[in-house]
């Protein structure tokens, strides 16, 4: 149980996929324009990660070593297809705004990376902990980036269509730059630098 906790906690901060490992940057920057998108995307990644980690660790002893990567990719692609179709059926607006980044979870380095580095060597039980930890770490990173981008870029904060916060002044004249592509690069750069300055992350 102790090890379960350790594997779970490590993904959240010590090896946070976005801030520490710099993996999965494409979706993290592309869809982080609103909290809703961030939640949807991280839910998709979490389900795929959990599914693929469980599957890979369950059959890890019967996969021949030479073809393991193609096998992992096929497993991941199957889960992504399931997610893609389910989102299309149950959350059409979310499916629309995530666009091609939902199918692109297939080539998300986080998912394949966990299969290769963790699930193919560890038991199913610990792989579940690993998947949950990494998924929550990814979700926190996405939420943090999109929080800044949505508030600065639109002056408001909405969750599932309900307005939570509207900043007077900023809402009428938002800094549109932040919801445009350059804003994504800027927010991630400053967050990384801030974390390093605070000593949460190591300097290079």
């Amino acid at each position: 149980m102790n090890r379960f906790r350790k594997e779970f906690l490590k993904g959240i901060i010590i090896s946070n996929p976005v801030f520490v490992l710099a993996l999965g940057l494409c979706p993290a920057l592309a869809i982080s324009i609103s909290i809703d998108n961030a939640l949807g995307m991280s839910m998709g990644v979490a389900i795929v990660l959990l599914g693929s980690n469980v599957m890979v660790s369950a059959i890890r002893k019967i996969i021949p070593n030479t073809v393991r990567i193609p096998v992992f990719i096929i497993i991941i692609a199957s889960f992504v297809t399931i997610i893609d179709l389910s989102f299309q059926a149950y959350f059409p607006p979310l499916h629309e705004s995530l666009g091609i980044f939902l199918p692109l979870i297939v080539v998300n380095c986080i998912v394949l990376g966990r299969s290769e580095a963790f699930a193919s060597k560890n038991s199913t039980f610990h792989s579940i902990a690993d998947a949950l930890g990494i998924a929550i770490g990814f979700m926190l990173a996405l939420l943090l980036i999109s929080l800044f981008r949505q508030i600065l870029g639109t002056g408001t904060l909405t969750l599932f269509g309900n307005e939570l916060l509207s900043l007077p002044g900023l809402a009428d004249h938002p800094m549109t730059l932040f919801i445009l592509p350059p804003g994504a690069f800027l927010v991630l750069a400053l967050l990384l630098a801030l974390f390093r300055r605070m000593g949460v992350l190591k300097n290079e």
Partner: peptide, 20 residues
């Protein structure tokens, strides 16, 4: 470059300017 900006952060800032 300031210590905490070295590596990825400064590369991201560069990417931001290119993107603009």
């Amino acid at each position: 470059i300031p210590k905490s900006m070295k590596g990825l952060p400064i590369a991201l800032i560069t990417a931001m300017l290119l993107s603009l």
